[in-house]
Design a protein around this nucleic acid. Structure first.
Lengths: 242, 242
DNA sequence: CGGCAAATTGACACATCTCAAAGCCTGTGG
DNA sequence: CCACAGGCTTTGAGATGTGTCAATTTGCCG
């Protein structure tokens, strides 16, 4: 199949594409695959010859620790994200990517990416940009981890997820589907599941969120962003020539 | 001046360069500047038209928090690092870069980088790679923050710094210059300076390190890496065709 | 209805923060 | 050479944040 529009829209929010560039991107051939919750989308440290984009649902980068079932999640992906594009230039991924809830992704071969980057320098810089936005999100998670307490830290994550989902049209009206368990939030934020539960209760008691099953609603966006000191500039959503 | 060899060696550790590529890189013109400890090398959110490489000393990416003097450090740079190359494809940096101890850097104009990336796709992928290694380090810091207690967390940072310094020839024999105060370590790891002090004492009492002024010696490398569960694969030091 | 995983709660242990004070090192001026 | 000042390091004590363990409740699914 042809590359979906999601990623192209992601790029066009941040720079202008010529008609030729848009056509070149649309000409990329992809293979669509659906995954059930918890399935491995990309395995760790396998020689990779393709990268994948999110079409629907969410996925996470998981780092398994030596001992026990402990795992740490270092990234979450929403529709439009080029999940493991960094695998194209790295020796191999030091993490696994798994589906959080049911997801649909599309795979692009590295052969096609190599051809594209050999001939289209501006598009190459835009692909590159998408991996550096990933890195900016990593940095913001580091800042949040170092400076926020559990409730505010959780609030920050929810603000980011909603902002990213709504920017690609996958959420609106302060409601979204959150296909994560409290255990998953614990693995993202570095707390015990029990402490996450207390943080969730705290946000509920402050009247900031409503959350049942996989449906989450932000009841007080100004309050939530204030608690989290959320400033979305790191998501780099300005339109510029790159 | 011409681009120094440091970064070229960084690339050649990870992929092969043709003679033409090596010559093309050496042809890049740079401007060398020396900074005193604490000086701003790259200011936040200014429109940037150049990026810099470390020649000597260390620098850090600083995120200033809204209130008070609180700051978080999300990256440390050693000689050979292309410190803010991500600024070439991003809209602007959401952080400041400051000198830790006296440093020497060289600046490369984005005009030159744009020319290079317009004509040399393989070199472009290698520049790209260097930013994705940065991101892999960010992820490892997230993993360490989520899974290690203070002493082990500090040990992990020291293992990483020594590994990165020695891989570019800036350290050997388990000794290196660490131009950081305990306050800086606190800003990196997300602890109070007082707690860092206790972690340092702990590592000393276990006979793992010796540290006086800016000179640090690792007395028991196996012990330190074991405590930190340090696995350097995320630094991506394999040689491959990219 | 029964069974299982997840969410929730309570009690207590451990980790880390804050505040305050003392010790150490270095540069400066007398 | 000494006295002093200032910043950094070190230590102690009590407050707060978070982890662990155990038990209960909830919700979903067969």
């Amino acid at each position: 199949m042809a590359l979906s529009d999601y990623f192209i829209r992601f790029l066009e929010q941040r720079d202008s594409l010529s008609d030729a560039e848009r056509a070149r991107l649309s000409g990329i051939q992809t293979r669509r695959v659906t995954f059930a919750s918890g399935e491995v989308i990309v395995a760790r440290q396998v020689v990779v010859d393709q990268s994948c984009l999110m079409l629907s649902g969410m996925s996470a980068r998981i780092h398994n620790l030596a001992q026990g079932n402990d795992r740490v999640i270092t990234a979450l992906h929403v529709p439009g994200d080029f999940v493991d594009l960094h695998g194209f230039v790295l020796a191999g991924l030091e993490h696994t990517v798994i589906a959080m809830g049911q997801t649909e992704v599309e795979f692009v071969s590295h052969d096609q990416l190599r051809q594209l980057t050999d001939e289209w320098p501006h598009l190459t810089r835009l692909l590159w940009m998408s991996t550096t936005i990933d890195a900016a999100i990593h940095r913001q998670w580091l800042v949040a981890a170092a400076s926020l307490r559990s409730s505010a830290h959780l609030a920050h994550l929810l603000c980011e997820i909603y902002t990213r989902l709504s920017s690609v049209g996958a959420a609106a009206d302060y409601r979204f589907t959150l296909p994560l368990l409290q255990r998953d939030l614990a693995n993202i934020l570095g707390y015990s599941p029990i402490h996450i539960n207390r943080a969730v209760r705290d946000l509920r008691e402050r009247g900031l969120i409503r959350w049942a099953g996989t449906e989450l609603e932000i009841l007080d966006w100004p309050g939530l962003t204030k608690l989290a000191r959320f400033r979305p500039d790191y998501l780099d959503m300005e339109k510029l020539s790159r």
